[in-house]
Every structure is written in C-alpha cells, then in structure tokens.
Design a protein around this nucleic acid. Structure first.
Lengths: 195, 195
DNA sequence: CGTCTATTTGAATGTACTCAAAAGCGGTGG
DNA sequence: CCACCGCTTTTGAGTACATTCAAATAGACG
C-alpha cells in the first residue's frame, strides 16, 4: 500500500529512491473496520492519514442532532482534521469508516520532523492544501442558493462511482437536505429520464 | 505598508532582518479605487496580494445572473484566485474593490523564485492555506441546512465590524439569500431586541 | 434637484421541512 | 427456511421557510 502513496506524491514533487524510502518510513499502516472511528468529536487528532483502501465520512451533529457530512475521504485521499491536528485542539468532527479500510498514518511530531529533514514535503502539503481549498471553495459557491435538485444532479455527475457506496441518508447529509426530500428528488429525476 | 505585511508574516515564520528586506522586495505596492477590478472572470490571475488597506469582494454570477460572494478580503488578508494563479487557467471570479484600497502584489514567477531562494516561505503559504481551508470548512458545514436567520446572526457575531462597510445586497449574496428576505430577517431581529 | 441605488413591504408561488406511517431489504437466530 | 429485527427508502399531508415580482420609500451623490 506504500506504493499507492508514492504514486500520489510523485504527481506533486520529485523524490530520489532513498528519499522515497525515507519518506515512506514515516507512515504506519493500519487497518480499520467498517463502522469504527478514526477520530471522535472532542479528541485531539494525532495523525494525518493517506487512505489506500476503503471509504470514510467526516461529519458532525448540530444542536438538533442533524448529521452534517463534510466529506467522504477514500482511496488516494488524505484524511484527518487539519484544524485539530495542527492546532492541537479538540476536534469538532467524527471520522468513521463506511467500509473496511486501510490507512497510512503519520503523527504530528513525525510530520514536523519530516518537514525539517525533507523540506520538499513542505511543498507537497502546500499543494495538497491548495487543492483541497480550491475544491471546497467551488463546492461552497456552487451550493449557495442552488436548489436541492441541482445540487443532487451535480453530485451525480461529479461522483458517479460514489453513489453505490453510499446510502441516501449519507448523500442527503452531505448535500444538506432531508432524506425525505432527496427520495422525492430521485423519483422525479427517474421519471424525467423515462420520458 | 510593507510593515503590515511583515507583522502578519512574523506571526507564522521567523525572518532575519536581511530576509525581511529580501522578502518584502518581491512585493509591489499598488493603489486601487473603489469599484475597480483587481481581476475579472476569464482573466488569468497573475498575482497574489496582501491587502494593507480597503475592502474587496470575490464573487461570480451564476446562470440566472445571481451574484454569489465567496469572501470579503480586507486589511491583513490575502487576496487572489489561487486556482487561476497556481494553475494558470482563466478565473471564474471577479475581484472588485468595495473601498479605495492598497495591496502588495507578487507575481507567479516571483513567488516561485521566492520559494526557491527563501524556502521558509513555503511554510508560510502552507500555513496560510491551511487557515483558509479550516475557516472555509467551518463555514461550509455550519451553513448546511441552517435557516437564513441563523446564518445572518452568525455573520453578525463573527464580523460585527464588517457590517457598516457592506450593503445588505452584498451580505445577502454572501449568505446565499435574497435581499428581500434579508431585509425581513433584519426587521424581525430588531423587533426581538426591543422586546 | 433629479438620478441611481439600496431598502422595505406585501402578495402569490414554490421549495423544503417535519411528522407519521408504510413498504422494502438484509442479516440473524430459531 | 422462515420470522423477526433494525435500518433504509418511500409516500403523503400539513406547515414553515424562502423566492419572485411589483411597487413604494428612503438615501447617497453629483
């Protein structure tokens, strides 16, 4: 599974063979079962992880108990709570495996050491952060004042592969609509396609 | 105005006096008048800027012509379109001054050079990016399924100083509600406070 | 003073939510 | 193999929230 990490990293920075080995040595592989938590609200996030297999949800619950899903980290993505991780403060999120998963973890101290010993990595994480920021910004502005039906069809277009791996409950929590409405929207879209 | 930039930077990385001078030499101060554009949709963003005075809006217009405001960069903030800037592709945003403003600009080439000649800067922009990401993530998840009235009072709490510098039209475009509804919400809140 | 823009107000319409109940579906144990 | 349980999905009725459109009022600025 380290290979997957390196493939991904090499898209952004170049590493010599020794550097590759060194880089990878910082990460500890773990397995995690469906429904288990990588992080719970209130805990301090002690790791950052690269997902090599499986699917997670990052979520939290508002005052009324409504689940809100921030993202679905999966293969070839990074997982963690940057805020809690970098500022060493209690997380406001849960990170839960939706499928059996495998992750390569790096601790905060190790990451700081890695920055010092292999400064290229600074660039790597700068780029990763930028990418995440760009994607989130787009999602944010696209969702402003956009009706639920469009948000759902946008989702379908963007993540067709994800559909089969999620329940409608989860998609609704991600889109920010009630699952009842989502169900009605799905029905409507199907009938449109038949016509 | 360079002093403001350094004050801000020194919160995140340490620089020697020579390094400070060197760092600052990369930035070109410009003045820009109210209503003028720093960037227009379709243009490639050739700079990143640090605002030392004034207020901007970053926005775009959807198919129906509705304005959607992404952010209000102002004193002590960075301004630009990272996506367009780093990937050299046409921007999907307008950046317009809402007040007479002053900005310190750095070009893409210069920023790359700066990374090479003063690697600490890599860390600086990694941290800046992380902060932006964290803030945006919070805004995103907080707005999911939250009624307009709460979004507005959240805004009041977070940015009380901004209120007097913005029109309701602009706040509405930021919150993602019609300005008519915003007006009604304001009325409602005032009457609540009187009681 | 007149012009342009921002703000308020109201009525009608549409969108989305809550609540409640039923139907579907998968897994588990008898 | 079937019965039962828990969870997801669907459906409908009623209500709340938000939008559109239109028009009146208020403010800012040359």
């Amino acid at each position: 599974m380290e290979t997957k990490l390196l493939q991904n990293v090499k898209k952004h920075i170049q590493l010599s063979e020794e550097e590759e080995t060194y880089f990878v040595s910082y990460f500890k592989p773990i397995s995690i079962q469906k429904k288990d938590f990588l992080l719970r609200e209130g805990e301090i996030c002690k790791f950052e992880g690269f997902v090599t297999k499986g699917l997670f949800k990052v979520c939290h619950y508002d005052e009324k108990g409504l689940e809100k899903i921030i993202s679905f980290p999966r293969e070839d993505w990074w997982v963690g709570d940057i805020d809690s991780f970098t500022n060493q403060k209690p997380s406001s999120y849960f990170i839960q495996a939706l499928e059996d998963a495998e992750v390569l973890l790096i601790s905060r101290e190790d990451k700081e050491n890695l920055y010092v010993n292999l400064p290229k990595v600074e660039k790597l994480f700068r780029i990763m952060g930028q990418k995440a920021l760009i994607a989130l910004q787009r999602r944010m502005s696209e969702n402003l004042r956009k009706p639920a039906e469009e948000r759902y069809s946008d989702f379908l277009e963007k993540y067709p592969q994800l559909l089969q791996r999620l329940t409608n409950l989860q998609i609704a929590a991600y889109l920010g609509v009630s699952h009842e409405l989502l169900s009605k929207i799905r029905k409507k879209i199907v009938s449109k396609k038949i016509i």
